[in-house]
Amino acid sequence: MPLTAAPLSGLPDPHVATVVPKRDFVDRVVAATGARRAEARPIIEATLDQLGQILSAGQTLAVPPLGRARINLERDARGGDVITLRLRRRASSTAPILVEKP
């Protein structure tokens, strides 16, 4: 009888990713900060643009509580560049983010 690894109960399959669309991402940021969507959206767009530019330039990005991200592998594909990142996070990075309103 061949041996097979039994999945650990309660843990998600690491090969199945849940995709969070940008609209949902913006909604989560708006809910977490209490900012108006019209105010938050351009800031989020600019932030995402800068993240992409920094990583595309091959620079390491150190942004707590996200962690330290660096390019692990980069290759050209027909649709554009494929960049594989390595993200190192602290073990206690699940703490809630508190935002103080003025």
Rank of each mutant, 00 (worst) to 15 (best):
M1W: 04
P2F: 01
T4P: 02
A5S: 02
A5F: 10
A6P: 01
A6E: 12
P7A: 11
P7S: 09
L8G: 10
L8H: 13
S9P: 02
G10A: 10
G10C: 10
G10K: 06
G10I: 08
L11F: 14
D13E: 10
H15E: 13
H15K: 14
V16S: 13
T18V: 11
V19I: 13
P21L: 13
D24C: 15
D24Q: 15
D27Y: 12
D27A: 14
D27Q: 09
R28V: 12
R28W: 14
R28G: 09
V29S: 12
V29A: 14
V30D: 05
T33K: 10
G34S: 04
A35G: 05
R37M: 04
A40N: 07
A40M: 15
R41G: 02
R41T: 03
R41I: 01
P42F: 01
I43A: 09
I44G: 08
L48W: 12
L48E: 07
D49M: 04
Q50F: 00
L51P: 00
G52A: 05
Q53R: 10
I54G: 07
S56L: 14
S56T: 06
A57G: 14
Q59W: 06
T60W: 00
A62F: 09
V63S: 10
V63W: 06
P64H: 05
P64E: 07
L66H: 11
G67R: 03
G67M: 05
G67A: 09
A69E: 03
A69I: 05
R70N: 01
R70H: 02
I71W: 06
N72F: 01
N72P: 01
L73F: 15
E74G: 09
E74F: 08
R75A: 10
D76A: 10
D76H: 09
D76E: 12
A77M: 14
G79V: 12
V82C: 02
T84L: 12
T84G: 06
R86P: 02
R86Y: 00
R86C: 01
R86E: 00
R90K: 04
A91M: 05
S92W: 10
T94P: 01
A95W: 13
P96E: 15
L98K: 11
E100L: 00
K101L: 11
P102F: 00
P102L: 07
